Amino acid sequence: MQIFVKTLTGKTITLEVEPSDTIENVKAKIQDKEGIPPDQQRLIFAGKQLEDGRTLSDYNIQKESTLHLVLR
């Protein structure tokens, strides 16, 4: 499924993921596309910060959901 990741600069990254993918996994995909190390990434969905060990389905993230990427 496709999800979108919006950065603070207003750029939107499109990722191909599975509901069973972990947040860690998603961060690795963002690193592949954008070169941002996962340890600098914070992903936010519905106002919650997403934890590395959880999966997209844990957070009920469905196709075409938009996550927000904050760098630390």
Rank of each mutant, 00 (worst) to 15 (best):
N60P: 03
G53H: 13
G53T: 09
L71S: 15
E34M: 12
L56P: 01
L69D: 00
V26L: 09
I3L: 08
T12P: 12
S57L: 12
K27R: 11
E16V: 09
I30T: 02
V26C: 02
L50D: 00
Q40T: 05
E24Q: 08
D39P: 12
I36C: 02
K48H: 12
I44F: 08
P38T: 07
Q40N: 13
L50K: 00
Q49Y: 11
P37T: 09
L15Q: 01
P38M: 12
R42P: 01
E51P: 04
T14G: 06
Y59V: 03
L69T: 02
D32V: 07
R72G: 10
T14D: 13
R72I: 04
T66V: 15
V17E: 01
G35C: 03
L69Y: 02
L50C: 02
T55I: 09
I3V: 06
Y59S: 08
K63R: 15
S20D: 11
Q41K: 02
K6S: 06
L8Q: 14
K27D: 00
V17S: 14
D58F: 13
L8H: 13
L43P: 01
K48Q: 13
N60V: 07
I61M: 10
R42N: 12
T12M: 06
R72P: 09
E64W: 11
K63V: 08
Q49H: 06
Q40R: 13
L56W: 01
D58V: 06
D32I: 14
V26F: 03
S57Q: 04
H68G: 12
R42G: 06
S65P: 02
N25K: 07
A28S: 15
Q2K: 13
Q2P: 04
F45Y: 14
L43M: 05
Q62K: 12
I3D: 00
G53P: 10
I36R: 03
L8M: 13
I61D: 00
T7Q: 04
Q62A: 05
L43D: 00
S20G: 04
V70F: 12
N60E: 06
P38E: 07
T12I: 04
D39I: 10
L71W: 04
E64L: 05
F4S: 09
M1E: 03
S57I: 07
V26K: 00
L43K: 00
Q41D: 01
K48I: 06
T55Q: 10
P37C: 03
F45L: 06
Y59Q: 10
L15R: 00
R42W: 08
G47V: 03
D39V: 15
G47Y: 13
K33C: 02
N25C: 02
Y59M: 06
D21V: 04
I44Y: 10
E18L: 05
N25W: 10
S65L: 08
V70L: 07
D58H: 13
E16H: 15
A28T: 15
V70G: 11
K63L: 08
V17Q: 12
Q41C: 02
G10S: 13
V17M: 12
V17W: 03
V5R: 00
Q41M: 13
D21H: 13
L67Q: 01
L71G: 05
H68L: 05
Q49A: 13
D58P: 01
Q62S: 08
I3M: 09
L50R: 00
S57T: 04
R42D: 08
L15V: 03
Q62C: 02
F4V: 10
T66R: 11
D39H: 15
E18M: 14
R54C: 02
D39Q: 11
R72V: 08
P38I: 14
D21T: 15
T7C: 02
K33R: 08
L50W: 01
R72N: 07
K11S: 10
N25M: 14
V5H: 00
T55Y: 15
T55N: 08
Q31G: 05
E16W: 12
Y59K: 01
A46T: 05
L15N: 00
P19S: 09
V70P: 01
L56K: 00
M1I: 04
A28F: 15
L67N: 01
K11G: 07
E51L: 15
V17K: 00
L15T: 01
E34C: 02
E18Y: 11
T22F: 15
Q62L: 11
R72E: 14
K29D: 05
V26P: 00
D21W: 05
L71F: 07
K29E: 09
A46V: 14
K48L: 11
E64M: 06
G35Y: 04
Q31N: 07
A28K: 04
D32G: 14
E16T: 12
I13L: 05
F45E: 02
Q49L: 06
R72L: 09
D21P: 00
R42M: 11
E51W: 14
Q2F: 06
T9R: 12
D39G: 10
I13W: 06
L71V: 05
Y59E: 05
I36P: 04
H68Q: 04
D39F: 14
L71D: 05
N60L: 07
L69S: 02
G53S: 12
T22G: 03
P37W: 12
L67F: 14
I44E: 05
G47C: 03
G35A: 10
T14A: 14
P38R: 14
I44V: 09
T22Q: 11
P38S: 14
K27M: 15
E18F: 14
D58S: 12
L67G: 01
I61K: 00
T14C: 02
Q41E: 02
K6V: 13
V5Q: 00
V26N: 00
K6N: 10
I23H: 02
N60H: 10
I13C: 02
E24N: 11
G47W: 08
N60D: 11
F45W: 08
E18N: 07
I13Y: 11
I3G: 00
I13K: 01
P38Q: 14
I30M: 08
T14K: 13
Y59I: 03
I61H: 01
P37Q: 09
I44S: 07
I30N: 01
P38H: 12
I61V: 10
T9A: 04
I23W: 01
D32K: 09
T66D: 10
T7A: 07
K48E: 13
L56E: 00
T55F: 04
P19R: 06
K48Y: 12
